[in-house]
């Protein structure tokens, strides 16, 4: 009984919100607040989609579901078109396929990546699935060969440098030296915290406790930044709604 009552309330909230949105837009068009052009209609649609997405904060609802699926579909469609016009057409269709059928000089070397790409799609067929392994072997071999040395250099060797700098530079202020010491202490204590071959007692225990504090501070900083990021997204949409749609702020 309560469930039925809640459903009825939700239905009226949804209907009321949609009606109010339609009424507000109609008023804006009649008063000239929104121009009857692509820009005006675009603003109205964008405002509607924004509100529909934020309606999830109240409860999961059909409007949110529709807009969520619309977003996925539009994003995929846009990606396909952009990939065709920016990658496939200039890099494969124009230099290889067009000349092949017009009798001009074609870049036959492009047949290799073209067939490797087609082979990857053959994973969907049982008889020819073995061909996709050729592409995967090429991708994995090339990827590992290129990535491993670059990653070791960039993300390990170069990252070791800040913890190996001299603590006292000539002519520097005291703060960089304190930072260097803190980085050193952080690296050592966190490494010891994750070193489980020795029991965490005595000096090892103390250092691992310091490591926990460093980890907690870094989690806190990450959480703070995440809050800032999420708020920024909300603020951006609220500015859009209040400035571009409602015209309440400049």
């Amino acid at each position: 009984m309560i469930n039925m009552k809640n459903k009825s309330i939700d239905f009226w909230i949804l209907t009321g919100t949609l009606s109010l949105f339609a009424l507000v837009n109609l008023l804006f068009f009649l008063l000239g607040r929104l121009s009857f052009s692509w820009e005006g209609i675009g603003t109205m649609i964008a405002a509607g989609l924004t509100l529909a997405i934020y309606s999830f904060l109240y409860k999961d609802n059909p409007t949110f579901k529709v807009v969520e699926n619309l977003y996925v579909g539009v994003a995929l469609g846009y990606t396909v078109i952009i990939t065709w016009f920016n990658a496939l057409k200039p890099d494969l269709y124009d230099p290889l396929l067009v000349p092949l059928f017009t009798g001009k000089h074609a870049q036959y070397l492009l047949l290799v990546p073209m067939f490797l790409g087609i082979f990857m799609l053959l994973r969907f067929t049982r008889r020819l699935v073995w061909l996709s392994r050729l592409t995967f072997a090429f991708v994995i071999g090339l990827g590992a060969g290129v990535t491993i040395p670059n990653y070791i250099h960039t993300f390990i060797l170069k990252q070791l440098e800040p913890s190996m700098r001299p603590v006292f530079y000539g002519g520097e202020t005291l703060l960089p030296s304190i930072n260097t010491l803190l980085i050193l202490l952080g690296v050592i204590s966190v490494l010891i915290y994750f070193f489980f071959s020795v029991e965490h007692k005595g000096p090892v225990g103390w250092l691992s406790r310091i490591g926990i504090w460093f980890l907690m501070i870094s989690f806190g900083a990450s959480f703070g930044y995440t809050v800032m990021g999420r708020m920024s997204l909300l603020i951006g949409r609220v500015i859009f709604l209040m400035r571009d749609w409602l015209g309440v702020i400049q």
Binding site: E161, P162, A221, I235
Partner: peptide, 23 residues
């Protein structure tokens, strides 16, 4: 802002010279 804290080590190792994080 979400990936901001992960980028600070590159600033410290001078692999990037500057960083703008979030709004």
């Amino acid at each position: 802002a979400v990936i901001g804290p992960d980028m600070y080590p590159y600033l410290d190792s001078r692999q990037i010279n500057g960083l703008m994080a979030g709004l």
